[in-house]
Amino acid sequence: MIRLLRTLGHLTVDGIWQVGFATRFLFAMLRHSGPSFARFSLTIRELYFSGVLSLVIIVVSGAFVGMVLGLQGYDTLQRFGSESALGSIVALSLLRELGPVVAALLFASRAGSAVTAEIGLMKATEQLTAMDMMAVNPLARVVAPRFWGGVLSMPLLAAIFSTVGVIGGWFIGVVVIGVDNGTFWSQMANSVDFREDVVNGVIKSFVFGWAVSLIAVFQGYDCTPTAEGVSRAITKTVVYSSLMVLALDFILTSFMYIVK
C-alpha cells in the first residue's frame, strides 16, 4: 500500500518536474532563437526537411481523407435528400478539424520523430557536447532552427491538406457521383466563414506546430544518450505529441465555437 502511494507520488513529482523542465527549455530556446532568424539558411534547411519532405504524405492523405468525406457525406446526406450540402460538409469538417488535426498527427510521426532521432543521436554521439566545447551553443545552432522550421511549416502543411482534401471531395462528389458543380461550390461558400473557419483552422495548426515541435526537440534533447534511450525518446515524441494535439484540439475547439 505504502509502496503504491510512493510510486504514485514519484510519478506525480516526476511529471511536474518534466513539465517545468520543458517550460524552462522552451524559454531558453526562445532566448537563443536569434541566430535561427539572423542566419535564416539554418531554418530554411529545417523547413526543407520537415516541410517539403512531408508534402508527399500530406498531399496523398489529404486527397484520400477528402475523397472519403465525399463518399461518406454523400451517403448520409442523400438519405435526407440534401446532397447539395455536400460541399459545406466537406469544407467545414476539413477546415475546422481534420485539416489541422490529421496534418499535425502526420507531421508528428513524419517530421517530429525525425527531429527527435537526429537530436538524440547527436547527443548520444556527444556532438552536442563537442559543440559546447567549441563555444557553439547547441540550443541556438541545432535545436532552435529545428523548432522554428516545424512551427513555420505546420500551418502551411495544414492549409495544403485542407485544400487538397476539398479538391478530393469535389472530385468524388462532382466528377464521380454527379452532384451539381455550381451547387457544390456555392453551398460551400455560403456556409464557410473566413474568420470563423479558415482563420480558426490556421490558429489551430499554428498551436499544434508549437506543441509538436517543442515535444520533438525536447524529447531529443532530454533523451538518455544510448541507442535504447533514443528509440524510447522517438516513441515518446509520437505518443505525446499525438495526445497533446488531440487534447489541445478539444480545448481550442471549445473556446472557438462553444464558449462565446
Binding site: 477546415l95 492549409a159 485544400t163 460551400m188 461558400a189 464557410v192 466563414d193 473566413f194 479558415v198
Partner: peptide, 8 residues
C-alpha cells in the same frame, strides 16, 4: 484558395 474559393 481556402479564403477565396471556399470561404468566398
Amino acid at each position: 484558395f481556402l479564403a477565396m474559393q471556399v470561404a468566398n
